[in-house]
Amino acid sequence: MQNPSGTHTDKQLALIRRYDPIKNIESLSTRPILLLHGDADTTVSIDSQRYFYQQMQVFNKKEVRYIRFVEIPDLNHQITLSIVEEMINWLDFHV
């Protein structure tokens, strides 16, 4: 959450940096990760997901089976039935 001026506090920025997936990519290398993102999302840019996915592939070439990225065409920042089905299938396989 941002403060009233629209910026993050120092404490919030420190937490964002601490939990940034890119900065923790090594610890995520063998964890199953499912990325689902609408390519028309106006709330969160899909570019960050694309970048993370590319970095995971570069970092962990041997275990790319652990990460799946699904771009949903023409979808804004919403959850659809197909997204829920994708999540269920992912969990069935990895849990």
Rank of each mutant, 00 (worst) to 15 (best):
residue 1 M to C: 09
residue 1 M to W: 05
residue 1 M to D: 08
residue 2 Q to I: 06
residue 2 Q to K: 15
residue 3 N to G: 12
residue 3 N to V: 08
residue 4 P to G: 06
residue 4 P to W: 01
residue 5 S to I: 09
residue 6 G to S: 01
residue 6 G to Y: 00
residue 7 T to C: 07
residue 7 T to K: 08
residue 7 T to E: 10
residue 8 H to L: 14
residue 8 H to C: 05
residue 9 T to V: 06
residue 9 T to H: 04
residue 10 D to T: 09
residue 11 K to L: 15
residue 11 K to D: 09
residue 12 Q to F: 05
residue 13 L to Y: 01
residue 13 L to H: 04
residue 14 A to G: 07
residue 15 L to H: 04
residue 16 I to T: 10
residue 16 I to Q: 15
residue 17 R to V: 03
residue 18 R to F: 04
residue 19 Y to M: 04
residue 19 Y to K: 02
residue 20 D to E: 04
residue 21 P to W: 01
residue 21 P to L: 05
residue 21 P to I: 00
residue 22 I to W: 00
residue 23 K to P: 03
residue 24 N to S: 08
residue 24 N to H: 08
residue 25 I to M: 15
residue 26 E to S: 14
residue 27 S to T: 08
residue 27 S to C: 10
residue 27 S to Q: 12
residue 28 L to N: 01
residue 28 L to V: 03
residue 29 S to W: 00
residue 29 S to F: 03
residue 29 S to C: 13
residue 29 S to V: 05
residue 30 T to G: 11
residue 30 T to P: 02
residue 31 R to F: 14
residue 31 R to L: 15
residue 31 R to N: 12
residue 31 R to T: 11
residue 32 P to Y: 01
residue 32 P to A: 04
residue 33 I to L: 09
residue 33 I to T: 01
residue 33 I to A: 01
residue 35 L to V: 04
residue 36 L to V: 06
residue 36 L to A: 01
residue 36 L to P: 02
residue 37 H to G: 02
residue 37 H to W: 02
residue 37 H to N: 07
residue 37 H to E: 02
residue 37 H to M: 11
residue 38 G to H: 01
residue 38 G to I: 00
residue 38 G to E: 02
residue 39 D to M: 07
residue 39 D to S: 10
residue 39 D to V: 05
residue 39 D to K: 04
residue 40 A to Q: 12
residue 41 D to S: 13
residue 41 D to P: 09
residue 41 D to H: 07
residue 41 D to F: 09
residue 42 T to Q: 11
residue 42 T to P: 05
residue 42 T to L: 10
residue 43 T to W: 11
residue 43 T to R: 15
residue 43 T to M: 12
residue 44 V to R: 10
residue 44 V to W: 07
residue 45 S to C: 08
residue 46 I to L: 10
residue 47 D to M: 09
residue 47 D to K: 15
residue 48 S to M: 09
residue 48 S to Q: 14
residue 48 S to A: 12
residue 49 Q to W: 03
residue 50 R to P: 04
residue 50 R to W: 05
residue 51 Y to D: 00
residue 51 Y to M: 02
residue 51 Y to G: 00
residue 51 Y to F: 06
residue 52 F to Q: 03
residue 52 F to C: 06
residue 52 F to G: 03
residue 52 F to K: 02
residue 53 Y to P: 06
residue 54 Q to I: 06
residue 54 Q to P: 07
residue 54 Q to Y: 11
residue 55 Q to E: 14
residue 55 Q to S: 08
residue 57 Q to H: 12
residue 58 V to R: 14
residue 58 V to M: 14
residue 58 V to H: 11
residue 58 V to I: 15
residue 59 F to M: 09
residue 60 N to E: 07
residue 61 K to F: 11
residue 62 K to E: 12
residue 62 K to T: 07
residue 62 K to H: 06
residue 63 E to L: 09
residue 63 E to P: 02
residue 63 E to Q: 14
residue 64 V to N: 11
residue 64 V to S: 14
residue 65 R to I: 10
residue 66 Y to K: 12
residue 66 Y to W: 09
residue 67 I to W: 03
residue 68 R to G: 05
residue 68 R to W: 04
residue 69 F to Q: 01
residue 70 V to R: 10
residue 70 V to G: 06
residue 70 V to P: 05
residue 71 E to T: 13
residue 71 E to N: 13
residue 72 I to K: 03
residue 72 I to V: 15
residue 72 I to C: 04
residue 73 P to W: 04
residue 74 D to S: 15
residue 76 N to K: 12
residue 76 N to W: 05
residue 78 Q to H: 14
residue 79 I to R: 12
residue 79 I to C: 14
residue 80 T to E: 09
residue 81 L to S: 09
residue 81 L to N: 07
residue 81 L to E: 13
residue 81 L to D: 10
